[in-house]
């Protein structure tokens, strides 16, 4: 386990370094002066000089890279071009909205998708199984940003049941929750399908195993056999799926935040891109990617913990 852990951690560190390198080189690969690119065409010469000095642009590129890595490792991601506030502080302010949205979206998808897949597997070819099958293909195929737009149209603009934009009044939990419903619905919908399908497939496999038959033969109640024994094993591939799908989740979160004007990381990156506020883009993309790599790492370790065979495969 320790060997696997070291190797897996090493891989993540390498990936993070490559991501940092990519982000850093983006600014330098584009022809032209990095300061002018970062600050945009409207920047004054003084601002450019100040930025060049701050970012150590007069140093050789490899030194700049090392400085950038060193700063990023200590939590210093530079200063916002417009407000001069630290990028780290701005990201910390916004990240809560994104995490809440991802948790809510994944949460309702799991609460609905996993039992649905379970029940479909317990009674194959029943009406519930058929409905689940059609539903999962349908929800997987519909792009999540379209779900966001249509949900906004139906529930906020047309029916006026829920608020359309923003994240709610600070301090008013009810209002914040009401603002969370539509985006969470939109990013979770396709996951209901994924999860139901995945759980169904692995449950069908597990239900044929000998130990499930033994558990039945002992006279355990079906509910206990299904949820207590079969699901525990069948859930493993689903954990991997959730971990790997987190990148897609980040993408749909970006869309949901933009469409519902929710002030999370995705909206932050988008606005910064539009304003060509490069320190924010660099910092926020790094944080978003880092978050993703952490989740994948966590799910891989969880799987290795559950299933010893995985440990030998790296």
């Amino acid at each position: 386990m320790l060997y696997y852990l070291t190797k897996r951690l090493g891989l993540s560190v390498v990936v993070i370094c490559l991501v940092v390198l990519l982000l850093f080189s983006l600014l330098h690969l584009i022809p032209g002066d990095p300061a002018t690119i970062a600050l945009g065409p409207r920047a004054t010469p003084e601002a450019i000089a100040r930025y060049a000095e701050k970012m150590h642009l007069d140093e050789p590129v490899w030194r700049q890279f090392l400085i950038y890595i060193g700063n990023a490792a200590t939590g210093d991601l530079g200063l916002d071009v417009f407000s001069d506030r630290p990028v780290t502080a701005i990201i910390l302010e916004r990240i809560g909205f994104t995490l809440a949205l991802v948790a809510a979206g994944m949460g309702w998808a799991m609460l609905l998708g996993i039992p649905l897949g379970c029940l479909a597997a317990v009674k194959p070819n029943s009406w519930l199984d058929r409905v689940t099958g059609v539903l999962s293909v349908g929800t997987i195929a519909v792009p999540s940003f379209l779900v966001s737009i249509w949900a906004l149209l139906i529930f906020a603009v047309h029916l006026r049941w829920l608020p359309a934009i923003g994240a709610g009044e600070p301090g008013d939990l009810g209002d914040q929750l009401a603002h969370l419903v539509l985006p969470a619905f939109a990013i979770g919908l396709s996951w209901v399908g994924y999860l139901a399908r995945m759980v169904r497939a692995s449950m069908l496999e597990v239900m044929g195993e000998n130990y499930i038959r033994s558990a039945r033969a002992f006279g355990l109640r079906p509910r206990r056999v299904i949820f207590g024994y079969a699901l525990r094993v069948a859930i493993l591939p689903t954990i991997t799926l959730i971990g790997m799908g987190f990148g897609g989740m980040i993408s749909s979160t970006v869309f949901a935040e933009i469409i519902f004007a929710r002030p999370g990381i995705g909206k932050l990156i988008f606005d910064a891109v539009m304003a060509r506020n490069f320190p924010i883009v660099q910092g926020a993309v790094l944080v978003a990617t880092g978050l993703y790599i952490l989740v994948v790492l966590f799910s891989d370790i969880l799987i290795a913990w559950f299933d010893p065979r995985v440990r030998e495969s790296l």
């Binding site: 891989l11 390498v14 990936v15 490559l18 991501v19 990519l22 982000l23 983006l26 600014l27 584009i30 690119i37 990148g247 897609g248 980040i250 993408s251 970006v254 869309f255 990156i269 988008f270 910064a272 891109v273 060509r276 490069f278 883009v281 660099q282 993309v285 978003a288 990617t289 993703y292 790599i293 994948v296």
Partner: peptide, 23 residues
């Protein structure tokens, strides 16, 4: 394999946003 993993670990839209910011 390492290269594939790195590319895969970049959320598409975030990668797109970062690139389009420049080009």
């Amino acid at each position: 394999l390492l290269l594939f993993d790195t590319v895969r670990s970049f959320p598409t839209i975030v990668l797109a946003l970062a690139t389009v910011a420049l080009t």
